[in-house]
Design a protein around this nucleic acid. Structure first.
Length: 269
DNA sequence: TAGGCCATCTGGTCCT
DNA sequence: AGGACCAGATGGCCTA
């Protein structure tokens, strides 16, 4: 099957195989034989398994109307059908991988040739945490803006002459601090230099599609920290959980029961 | 070398 | 009936 010479897969989610959209773009003739006609001893390695599957498919053709129709199909028609199905499935998976790549692009991790691509599971978990973190920070910012605005209104009502234009709300340094810390936790790395206390890097509040500078995140010249891959939930990262103290990080807020189980997912190496 | 990650094939199920 | 979606199986590549 994939052991065919043409299917040497790259690690990219968009295989460099020239998979045309027509049925069986890179389907080797050997595979055909294995699946369709190949029950007669041409199977190697896993070929026999596929052959058995194929034979199951053909024997099951005796069941039901759909199966009868299949039984009526010629060998070539069955081949074409199988190729069409395979091609669709390939395309579906490629689309899925494209979407995954799109997600990776907006994730706050270094995008460099020296940085290893996030795995799918890591991408999903990181994305989820990122969303939670941004939501939490947004709520905090709303609260702060409300407080500042309320204070301004109160002072205006006390002062008879209209005050000059309300002073711009102070830069939301405080509410963003958890965000920056959480970002650090997301890219937890013992070597990461903490953000200067009280100083918010200008890139920290950028939109997801303009991720924080990798320099700020502290892994500019480093590959994705292995701790991230092992533990994207920063349980072992630079963000320490002190005994008896609740973690201020937004990621440690109680999670909906439906999603809490995600924390238990194995994350690989 | 073991384990993780991935692409692909495949059959089953559900939906339109 | 055909297509989309899903999960299991398999082998290849890569890294610790």
């Amino acid at each position: 099957m994939d052991s065919d010479a043409g299917s040497t897969c790259s690690r990219s989610s968009s295989p460099d195989l020239a998979v045309d959209s027509t049925a069986g773009g890179f389907f080797s003739s050997k595979m055909f034989q294995t699946y369709c006609g190949g029950q007669e001893g041409t199977n190697q390695s896993v070929g026999h398994l596929r052959g058995e599957r194929g034979s199951v498919a053909t024997t099951s053709a005796g069941l039901g109307g759909k199966a009868r129709t299949r039984a009526d199909l010629s060998k070539e028609d069955l081949q074409d059908l199988r190729l069409k199905v395979n091609s669709r499935e390939r395309k579906r998976m490629h689309d899925l991988n494209q979407a995954m790549d799109g997600l990776r692009e907006v994730m706050p991790y270094a995008h460099g040739p020296s940085v290893r691509k996030l795995s799918k599971i890591s991408t999903l978990l990181l994305a989820r945490n990122y969303i939670l973190m941004l939501s939490s920070s947004l709520e905090e910012m709303k609260k702060l803006v409300g407080d500042v605005y309320g204070a301004n209104m109160a002072s205006q009502s006390r002062v008879i002459p209209p005050a000059p234009a309300p002073a711009p709300a102070p830069a939301p340094r405080l509410p963003l601090l958890p965000l920056t810390q959480s970002l650090h936790s997301l890219v937890a790395n013992p070597n990461v230099v903490s953000a200067p206390s009280g100083g918010i890097p200008p890139t920290a509040a950028q939109a997801p599609n303009s991720p924080p500078s990798s320099g700020y995140l502290g892994f500019h010249a480093h590959p994705i920290p292995s701790s991230l891959l092992k533990d994207p939930l920063h349980l072992a990262g630079s963000y320490r959980h002190f005994p008896g103290m609740p973690c201020p990080c937004s990621l440690c807020q109680p999670l909906p029961a439906s999603t809490a189980s995600l924390h238990c997912l194995p994350l690989g190496k």
